[in-house]
Design a protein around this nucleic acid. Structure first.
Length: 572
RNA sequence: GCGCCCGUAGCUCAACUGGAUAGAGCAUCGGCCUUCUAAGCCGAGGGUUACAGGUUCAAGUCCUGUCGGGCGUACCA
């Protein structure tokens, strides 16, 4: 149940009645406990419009709304806030086993999400984590809400750097073991190829020839290319699997997939009169984009030598997503440096009619990862930390911690907990921040296990499970409701009812940190409840009520964490 | 130069998109384990929300300007 929406509708109706025209209730969580559970702020704006006293308006609104069975106290406070206290009966009936944690949307859409999209020429590094985990979370959330999600891994599998890589691969062909060894570490392989390219002119010539051969469809070169792509993809897949990222080979649709369509895109733009020629290149000029001299900035779709660019590829991808995949929405989880690029692509796509008015096309950007010295990770010169190294370190540190906290556990159990906790911490570090700013990569911060981190949420969960085990609780025998009498129980109960609204927001805005904030608040509320309200030792009715609160909290934490792509453990 | 993004506690970040006394975590200091897991709980200190104006019942949030930072800005992706 979306509680806020419910209140917004109920109070909004009252507001509109008083106004004589549609008016918004503007319901939010109350800023402090003495102001109740929720507050409606719409009366002030309405009073302004009607040129009347806000408190008077608020009083009329209260008279005209029916919150029977939902609220047991409504008050006017300050300049005209309407404060609402939810009734215990409402909390009890809302938090019961047959109410689903998340309701499906009545308006299911087809949503394409473009995320992860690593460059296959190199190995995935820590900078790829952001897009990968955010996209993974967004797709899980949208699926949970009942939408049809189509994942698109727009990998970089085409371009001039492959000439150099394929040439180097050819050189090693006769020495199978050497080739295998080098390809096992793509970072090493890339550097070796680059070194040859820079130092050996003959090699560089062959590399350039291979680029041409590749682009013109030479069968042998294509075969080698396919081999390389397969190997590189399997590197990615190993990381996806470790991190439990829901991307498979079927979701891969790289740049090369659009090659055959590029000519058609350009022709189509031409037929629609959008194309003009400038310095030999074919471009779309848009009034809203200017270059550094204040002159119109082109979106170049075909170079003067006849070649195509990533703008062309992306236009083709847009067309594919809306025409072939029948998307209602297409979300791009790609870093901030590409803001202008996507603004241009989206504008052209709209002009060309690839996307209609009621179809959504949005770029969800985020800042780049910087090294400790504040400088960007160079993806050309190496120096970027391999994602695999981060994951190794996460497992090691978590293993040490588990070992020190629970020395009695066997190694296998410790290892399995270390994986869930370590990777959870890494993912949460990225998911919990909304910054469009750049941010500094820091091992200790990334691998922290204290405070507002995934392990805190996992700990809350395992504490609840441990409680059930100790109490030998059988929920099939508990059919009573909850009674939230203490402040801690009440806060926890209200918090549980905000889950739906939070998840819907994440689906709408593609902002996983909202879910992180929510789950942290939920876990904090639970911890306070746990400290103040004994569960197993309480008399039967109270014990059952508290057990039900625990159960709902555990279920919400587990589902919420799973939507973040983070696991839970029974013990830790 | 122009465009976009950003500037919140010592550090990393929130603030439900204009609402009441700007909140968390880390770090620092003090308390709480013979009662359900101390990866926890309770408490303290720490702020002119970069700066200056403006808009209004109400501004961290909107507008203008200044300073500081990042990114982008014609055939790489």
């Amino acid at each position: 149940m979306n509680l806020r929406k419910l209140l917004d509708e109920r109070i909004g109706r009252g507001m509109s009645k008083v106004s004589g025209a549609p008016a918004l209730a503007v319901v939010t969580r109350s800023s402090r406990p003495e102001f109740g559970d929720f507050q409606a702020n719409g009366a002030m704006a309405l009073a302004k419009k009607l040129k009347r006293s806000p408190r008077e308006i608020a009083a009329q609104v209260i008279d005209s709304i029916d919150l029977n069975g939902i609220a047991d106290k409504i008050e006017i406070a300050g300049p005209g806030f309407i404060n609402i206290w939810l009734s215990e009966a409402f909390l009890s009936s809302s938090i019961c086993a047959n109410n689903p944690l998340i309701e499906k949307t009545p308006q299911a859409q087809t949503v394409v999400v473009d995320y992860s999209s690593p460059n296959l020429a190199k190995e995935m590094h820590v900078g790829h984590l952001r897009s990968t985990v955010i996209g993974d979370c967004v797709t899980r959330v949208l699926s949970q809400l009942g939408h049809t999600v189509i994942r698109q891994n727009h990998v970089g599998d085409w371009g001039t750097q492959f000439g150099m890589l394929l040439t180097h691969m050819d050189e090693l062909k006769d020495r199978k073991s050497a080739q295998k060894e080098e390809l096992a570490d793509l970072e090493f392989f890339y550097r070796a190829a680059k070194k040859r390219f820079d130092s050996d002119p003959e090699f560089a010539d062959r590399a350039r020839a291979n680029v041409v051969a590749l682009q013109s469809g030479n069968v042998d070169v294509l075969h080698t290319w396919q081999q390389f792509i397969d190997i590189s993809l399997s590197h990615c897949e190993a990381l996806y699997e470790r991190l439990d990222i829901q991307l498979t080979r079927a979701d891969v649709r790289g740049e090369s997939a659009y090659n055959d369509d590029l000519k058609s895109v350009v022709e189509d733009l031409d037929s629609k009169g959008l194309l003009s020629e400038s310095n030999g290149a074919r471009c779309v000029f848009l009034d809203e984009f200017k270059n550094k001299d204040g002159e119109p900035l082109p979106v170049i779709v075909q170079k003067s030598d006849g070649g195509y660019l990533y703008a062309t590829t992306d236009l083709s991808a847009v067309r594919h997503r809306f025409n072939k995949l029948r998307a209602d929405r297409a979300l791009y989880i790609v870093g901030a440096p590409q803001i202008l690029h996507f603004q241009q692509i989206f504008a052209v796509a709209r002009l060309a009619g690839y996307v209609t008015q009621n179809q959504e096309l949005t770029h969800h950007s985020f800042g780049s990862m910087l090294a400790k010295d504040g400088k960007p990770f160079s993806t050309r010169k190496g120096g970027a930390e391999k994602l695999a190294n981060l994951l190794d370190e996460a497992e090691e540190r978590a293993f040490e911690l588990v070992s020190s906290k629970s020395p009695e556990m066997n190694t296998a159990a410790k290892k399995s907990i270390a994986r869930v906790v370590g990777f959870g911490a890494v993912k949460y570090a990225d998911l919990s921040k909304n910054r469009t700013n750049d941010y500094i990569f820091d091992w200790d911060q990334m691998l922290s296990f204290d405070g507002n981190t995934a392990p805190y949420l996992q700990y809350a969960y395992s504490r609840i499970k441990s409680l059930f085990k100790r109490g030998e609780v059988d929920f099939s025998k508990i059919d009573s409701g909850i009674s939230a009498q203490s402040a801690q129980e009440h806060q926890l109960a209200v918090c549980l009812l905000v889950f739906q609204e939070t998840v819907e927001s994440v689906g709408r805005e593609a902002l996983p940190h909202l879910l992180c904030n929510y789950l942290y608040e939920l876990a904090s509320n639970y911890m306070r409840f746990y400290e103040h309200c004994p569960v197993l030792s309480a008399e039967e009715d109270l014990r059952n009520s508290r057990l039900l609160l625990c159960k709902r909290t555990a279920d919400t934490l587990k589902l919420g964490l799973s939507l973040l792509g983070i696991g839970t453990v029974e013990r830790m």
